[in-house]
Design a binder for these strands. Structure first.
Length: 710
RNA sequence: GGAUCCGUAGCUCAGAUGGCUAGAGCGUUUCGUUGACAUCGAAAAGGUCAGAGGUUCGAGUCCUCUCGGGUCCACCA
């Protein structure tokens, strides 16, 4: 054995050994308990980042249960990550001077498909590199034809059950990315924008968006506001930049009499609250801002200007005409931006498909409250409930090509507004006029609509028996940051489609941050590349560094120092092994049959002590995995192996070993091998290698050896 | 405005159901390498557990308030 642990030569060897022997592939065996986890699918086109190494937690659970003898399935997949991927691809196009508008839909789709397929293998090999014991034989992709079928069927069922509707309400639209979003993708930021007090006929009212005044279709006051009582229901004449126009004064509860002058301009096409007021008062909509982010012809001479310059120009002209009463320059409010590109989100009227979320969410709340789904750490239950209680209808339409096309058609001949929804097969003719001139909705699904069906979809595609045996899955483990995006939606859709919970326990880890607790980002330059770290210090060290020392569920501060520390631990393990091996060899050269060594009836105090401590360790590690406190197990193992076993016990028995004390070698070997078993879920490679090196007889590989019992 | 997490040694963090002189890693200081490991060992320094009040025989641990951070949510025109 080398003086130092050389992870390079060990890790690859063992992964292919495990994979070739199908240890990752459980059979459907009703005689066994099942333990199943669906891997949160990484983006197919992207490399893994440090956060993905938190999958270690799932690997710990899977390896532990596999050793316990359960039929343990960890099912890998890849996500097409619709908008995210198209965004990345468009950037790439940009670099070569092209844009997505240079290609027709099918060509663009094909180009992205090729792009993703080129990169997909990277991600998969990186998962292997980190030692994750995933069942590759059951691997799935969100754009596999069978998955698409399931997603289509879900859409149709929602439609048939009345949980789906088409609505021309305001959608969160990013004019730069050219697509609408759900509420979750809008990122609100605090910003200073002047609050303009504009003269509106006999009144003054406050707005931050003077450029939308061309879209006003009323002014509103609070119904009980004394100042405006006699005007309610009357029409006022307003002098504007493009001539005089008339507006009705309406009364609505939504108006806050304390804000501004207590009067608000109503622009139903560009403000969520105004839109709702418009609905209540049957106001017309005038769209001032187009989907290209420029003012429309409604704005007369201002047509074609982008929003920001338009505002400037409008303010300038209003000032010149004496139509601005005053300006509050210090006004601060929160404003919606695109979570991806940071551009301001425009609420724009666009027909989209919405899921009626209340019945689904209410059911999810009921299930969680009845403890059919548990959360770990517990505090996340409250957060999930808060989300589920506040969800509003979910817009699942996206104006992008990279995704699953929505299976809905419209007849172009009979002008019927009715949609023909299928389970994916192309609609052939209009049920009203029998016409064949049908047009499919050009939109695709929100990625989260398909990944929200992941637990049952992945188990149904290959083999119905998998679904029967492995569903519901036992644990869903992911970062707490996607609790509303993903976890809540899986619960809602899982319950709706299968009538069962998709998983029994939700286990949420914290975010990996830098050594100072700051978010890692390219712009800050504090990103740690997991593959580089694995190459330098070993995958085991990297895995352990992420688990050790931080209470599970809290954010994990990470530094190269910490990984190096765990590399040192690997080396410590290695040298304990080397010490044992050295003694085994010297015993053998004295013709002692080390295969027959036994720990029975040892009389030495130090032997009894270490064996007693090993019992405690076994108990601690088992409990900490069962309770999802992986950090406690890691701490206990580190402490025991380094300080109890190496520093104290080994030092205590060195003299006995020199004298060929067989009990000493027996106890030492037994304690160490047992520790390796307990450590194997955390650090699979080095433990497997050491077990092989030290085994006295032909032993099973650790990956399938039985979990130690007290 | 609401929710939630956090403030413990120089740094990063552990410290279920309150109970022996408050712990670890890294860092610092001193000493130690001829047969496991310098990616090591032995020892040491270093904390009014953010602050105040309360419950208790006893509080880092429970309650209230204050201060200081982080994160998330909300249709602030």
């Amino acid at each position: 054995m080398d003086k130092r642990y050389q992870h390079e030569s060990v890790e690859e060897k063992w992964y292919s050994f495990w994979e070739k022997n199908s240890f990752f592939t459980p059979n459907v065996d009703h005689g066994k308990k099942q333990f199943s986890i669906i891997l949160p699918p990484p983006n197919a086109n992207a490399d893994l980042h440090l956060g993905h190494v938190m999958y270690t937690v799932e690997d710990i659970l899977i390896r532990y249960h596999r050793m316990k003898g359960d039929a343990s399935l960890w099912l890998p997949g890849a996500d097409h990550a619709g908008f995210e991927t198209q965004f990345v691809f468009e950037k790439k196009l940009q670099k070569s001077g092209k844009s997505r508008f240079d290609y027709d839909r099918d060509t663009l789709y094909k180009m992205i498909w090729d792009f993703v397929y080129e990169n997909r293998g990277n991600m998969e090999n990186q998962l292997r590199r980190l030692g994750f014991s995933l069942d590759w034989s059951r691997q799935v992709f969100t754009l596999d034809p069978e998955i698409i079928k399931i997603v289509h069927r879900t859409f149709k069922k929602l439609f048939d059950d009345g949980f789906l509707y088409r609505s021309n309400r305001l959608v969160n639209y990013c004019t730069r990315d050219g697509t609408g979003f759900s509420d979750l993708e809008v990122h609100y930021i605090e910003r200073n924008d002047p609050l303009y007090y504009l003269k509106y006929g006999p009144f003054v009212l406050a707005t931050t968006r003077p450029e939308t005044k061309f879209g006003d279709t009323a002014v509103a006051v609070h119904p009980e506001d004394k100042r405006y009582q006699k005007w309610i229901g009357k029409e006022i004449e307003v002098e504007g930049l493009i001539g005089k126009f008339k507006l009705m004064v309406i009364a609505d509860q939504a108006v806050d009499p304390k804000f501004g002058t207590g009067m608000v301009k109503v622009t139903p096409a560009h403000d969520m609250a105004d839109f709702e007021m418009g609905q209540r008062h049957k106001l017309p909509m005038k769209q001032v801002i187009g989907f290209d982010g420029r003012l429309t012809k409604v704005a007369g001479p201002y047509k074609g200007l982008k929003v920001a310059p338009a505002r400037q120009k409008v303010v300038e002209d209003l000032k010149a005409r004496g139509l601005i009463d005053r300006i509050n320059e210090k006004y601060v409010h929160s404003i919606g931006t695109c979570y991806k590109c940071g551009h301001i989100i425009e609420p724009l009227p666009l027909p989209q498909w919405y899921i009626k979320i209340r019945p689904l969410a209410d059911n999810a709340v009921k299930i969680i409250k009845s403890k059919k789904i548990k959360f770990s750490p517990k505090r996340f239950e409250k957060i999930a409930l808060q989300w589920l209680t506040n969800f509003r209808d979910w817009n699942i339409s996206r104006q992008i090509v990279w995704g699953i096309r929505i299976p809905a058609w419209k007849c172009l001949d009979c002008k019927n507004e009715e949609w023909i929804v299928t389970d994916g097969t192309a609609a052939e003719n209009c049920p009203h006029c029998r016409g064949k001139n049908l047009e499919q909705d050009p939109d695709t699904f929100d990625t989260w609509f398909s990944s929200g069906q992941w637990p049952f979809a992945t188990l149904k595609v290959k083999n119905e028996k998998d679904y029967e045996f492995f569903y519901p899955t036992q644990v869903l483990e992911t970062g707490y940051d996607i609790l509303p995006w993903w976890v809540c939606r899986m619960i809602m859709l899982g319950l709706y489609i299968t009538g069962k919970v998709p998983f029994k326990t939700v286990c949420l880890h914290g975010l990996v941050r830098d050594a100072k607790g700051q978010k890692m980002s390219k712009s800050k330059g504090n990103v740690i590349n997991p593959l580089t770290m694995a190459d330098m210090y070993g995958a085991d060290a990297l895995r352990m560094a992420l688990i050790y020392g931080t209470a599970f569920g809290n954010d994990v501060p990470m530094s190269e120092d910490k990984i190096r520390g765990m590399r040192n631990f690997s080396n410590k393990l290695w040298n304990i092994g080397r010490f044992i091996k050295m003694n085994q060899d010297s015993f053998q050269s004295e013709k002692i049959n080390i295969a027959k060594l036994s720990i029975e009836k040892t009389t030495q105090t130090e032997d009894k002590n270490i064996l007693e401590e090993l019992k405690t360790l076994t108990d601690d590690v088992t409990k900490s995995i069962e309770e999802f406190r992986f950090d406690k197990g890691a701490d206990a193992l580190y402490e025991f192996i380094w300080h109890n076993l190496a520093d104290k016990y080994i030092e205590a028995v060195k003299q006995r070993l020199k004298n060929y004390d067989q009990k000493a070698l027996a106890v030492l070997t037994c304690v160490f091998i047992t520790s390796l078993k307990l450590l194997h879920p955390y650090m699979p490679f080095i433990t497997e290698e050491l077990n092989k090196q030290l085994s006295l007889k032909e032993e099973q590989p650790l990956i399938i050896s039985p979990w130690p019992k007290i």
